[in-house]
Write a protein that binds this DNA or RNA. Structure first.
Lengths: 204, 204, 204, 204
DNA sequence: TATGAATGAGTCTTCATTCAT
DNA sequence: AATGAATGAAGACTCATTCAT
C-alpha cells in the first residue's frame, strides 16, 4: 500500500501534487475537514480522483501536507521580527502593532483559523504541528529579545505566556465573543501585563 | 415532524432520556462527535435506535443537551468561589489553588476536553454555549471580587484576561506540549502577572 | 392477531374510533397516505398511538374505513338527482348545473381528490371501492332516467361514458392543466356530446 | 453537492446509466415507487448502490428520467398518425383501430400504467410530464386533422375531449371494472360520440 | 380500555478508497 | 502517470407496530 504512494519527479507531476495540496487545504479552511470530500478536492485541483491516491496515503495526508506548506503564513505571520534594534521605550508600541497585524491577518481568514483549530483539538498530528510551531515561534522571539539584551532567565516561559495572552486577546476581538467588553482597554491591559512579565528581564 | 419530539412524562422514560444524554455525551467525549454514531449511543444507553429520535431532534441535539447538563461540572468546576472574605495577602495562594484544582479536574478527562474544544471551533451552537459560560464565569468572579472591595473599573476585562491566562497555562501543563518548559516557574509568572493586572483594582 | 381488533360497544369507545377515522382520513386527504404516519393520526384524533391498533388492523384499514364513511360525500355529491320530473328541454341545463356543482365540490378539496385518486391507481382495495361507487352512481342515474321514460337500451353504458366525460372535463377545469383551452366552449361541447349520446334513448 | 452528479462520458458508463434508468423504471412500473428501494434498483441494474447517486440526484430523478425515456412508448404509442390522406368515411374505422391499439398496448403493462398514474396524482413533476404529453398529443392530432381539411374551430378542445373519451373507455375495458357492461357496444357509443363532436368541423 | 414508551428493520444517501482501462 | 467509473460499508433518521403498565 504505502509503496504505491509516488513521489513525483517530473515537473508537471510536481505541479499536480502541489495543486492538490493547495485545493485540499483551501477547501478544508473554507468548509472544514469533515464537510468536504476528496472528489471536491480533485475537482478544484483540476485532476482526477484516482490520482489523489497516488500522491497521498489518504485524505488526512493532504491536510498535513497543506498545513506544512501553508500553515506558517496563515498562523504565524506576525513573527516578522523588527530588524532595527529594540528600544525599551517602544515595547508597548511594538506589541500593539503585533496585535494589530495578528488581528488583521486573522480577519481575512476567520473560518480557516476556526476549522484548523478544531482539528488541533481532535487530531494528534495536527496538534503536534502546532506545538512545534508554537515552540519555534517562541524560539525566534527569544533570539530576538536576547539580541537586545534581555536576560535569559525563564525567557521562553515568559514569551510563551505572552504569546498566549495575545492570542486570546485577538481571538476575543475577532470573534467578538462578548460585546460587553471594552476591547481598547483590553489591549491596554494585555500590553501592560506583558510589560510587567518582562520587567525583570530587561537589563539596564 | 418537529412535533414528534416527545418530552417523556413517565419516570422510567425520563430516566431513559437521561441515559441517552449521558451515553451520548460520554461517547462524544471519549471518541469525538464524528467518530461515534447514533447506534452506538443507543447501545450504550441500553435502548433502541428509534427511541433516540423520539427524544432528540438529531444527533447534534444530544450533544447540546449533554453539554448543558454536564458541561458545567466538566469545564467550570473551579468557580467554587471561596466563602470566606478575601485577604489581599492570600491572592497568590487563591489563584494557585484554583490552578491546581483546574488541572486536577481536567486531567481526569483529557480527551473529553479536547473533543469538546474541537467542537467549539467548528460548531456555532457549541461555541455559543462556551461564550455564554465564559461570560457567566467572569460575572461570578466579578461579583466575588467586588464584594471584597475591588474597584469596578474594567474588572470584567481584567478577569477575562486572567482566566484566559490560567486556561492557557493549564492546557500547557496538562498536555505537556513543550517539555522544555519549567512549569513551576510558569505558574509563578502567571500568578505574578495576574497580581499585576489587578494591582490598580485593589482598594486600600 | 385479527382477534385483537376490537369492535367498540361503549359509546365513548365508538366515538374514539370515529375520531381516529376522521383524523386519519383528513390527514391522508391533506397530505397523502405516504406522507403521514400513525402517530400523527393518533395525535390529531386526541388518542394514544396504542389504541389505534386496537380498533384497526393496520394503517391501511383506517384509510378504508375513512373512505367508506366519507368517500361518498367527498366524491359523489353531485348525484342529488333532481326530484321534479325531467323535461327534455332542460337536459343541457341539468347537465350544466351538475358540472358546476361537481367543480364547486372538488375545488374545496383539491388535494383530497388527488391523494385519493393516487391510491385508486396503486391500491386494489381503494380501486375496488371506486369501481363499486361508480357503478352505484350509474345505477342511480339510470333509475332516474328510466323513471323519465328513457329507453333501457345500453343506458348503463351511455351513462357511464357520460359521467366519465364530465369527470374528465371537471378535472381539466379544476387543475387548469392546459391554459390554452377554452373551458366555456369545452363545457358546451361536452354537453352537446352527451345530448347526442342519449339522443336515441329519449322516447318521444 | 449538486456538482457530484456526473454525466458519464465513457461508453460503458453511459450504458450503465442507461441500465439504471431501465431497472429503476421497470421496478417502479412493476411494484410502485414506494415499494421498491434504491438497493433493488442497483441490484437489478447490476451495479453498486453508490454509482446510482453519481448519476442521479435522488431516487425521484431516476423515475423522471425513466419517464422521459420510456414514457412515450408506454403511454402514447397510438399516436402513429396514419400517413395516407384521411377519408371521412373511414373515420369510425380509424378511431376503432386506435382504440384497439391502445388497449393492446396497455394490456401488456397493466401495472406499469397504474403505478405511473398513481404518481400523476401525487407527484407534481410526474403530473407536469403528463400534462405536457397530453398537450403534445393533442397538437399532433390537430395538425393531422387540419391537413385533412378539418376546421380549426375549437379543434384542440374537441380533440382533447375525444382523447379523454378513448382513454376512459380503454381503461374501463382493460381493467374490466364493471363486468355488467357491454364493451363492444361501449366502443360503438364512443365512436359515435366522437363523430358527433367533430361533425361541425369536417368541411365538405 | 387506554397509554405512550419502545422496538428495530428498513430507507435514502454519502464518501473514502480501489480498479479497469 | 492518469482517468473517472465503481465499490460497498456505514450513517442518520423514520415509522408501522407491539409491549409493559
Amino acid at each position: 500500500m504505502d509503496s504505491t504512494i509516488r513521489e513525483p519527479k517530473q515537473k508537471r507531476a510536481i505541479e499536480k501534487k502541489e495543486k492538490i495540496i493547495r485545493a485540499g487545504f483551501d477547501l478544508i479552511c473554507e468548509n472544514g475537514y469533515y464537510n468536504i470530500n476528496t472528489a471536491e478536492i480533485a475537482k478544484r485541483a483540476g485532476v482526477s480522483t484516482g490520482i489523489v491516491y497516488q500522491y497521498f496515503k489518504d485524505k488526512h495526508a493532504i491536510l498535513m501536507e497543506g498545513l506544512n506548506r501553508y500553515g506558517d503564513t496563515l498562523f504565524y505571520p506576525m513573527i516578522k521580527v523588527p530588524e532595527d534594534p529594540f528600544d525599551k521605550k517602544h515595547f508597548p508600541r511594538i506589541i500593539k502593532s503585533m496585535i494589530q497585524e495578528y488581528i488583521q491577518n486573522h480577519k481575512v481568514s476567520k473560518t480557516a483559523h476556526e476549522e484548523i483549530m478544531a482539528m488541533v483539538h481532535s487530531d494528534p498530528e495536527v496538534a503536534a504541528y502546532f506545538y512545534k510551531r508554537e515552540w519555534e515561534t517562541t524560539a525566534i522571539v527569544k533570539e530576538y529579545l536576547m539580541k537586545n539584551q534581555f536576560s535569559d532567565l525563564y525567557l521562553s516561559e515568559k514569551i510563551h505566556i505572552s504569546l498566549g495572552l495575545i492570542d486570546n486577546l485577538c481571538h476575543e476581538i475577532i470573534y467578538h465573543k462578548h460585546d460587553e467588553m471594552d476591547y481598547d482597554r483590553m489591549i491596554e491591559i494585555v500590553i501592560c501585563a506583558i510589560e510587567k512579565i518582562f520587567q525583570g528581564s530587561i537589563k539596564k
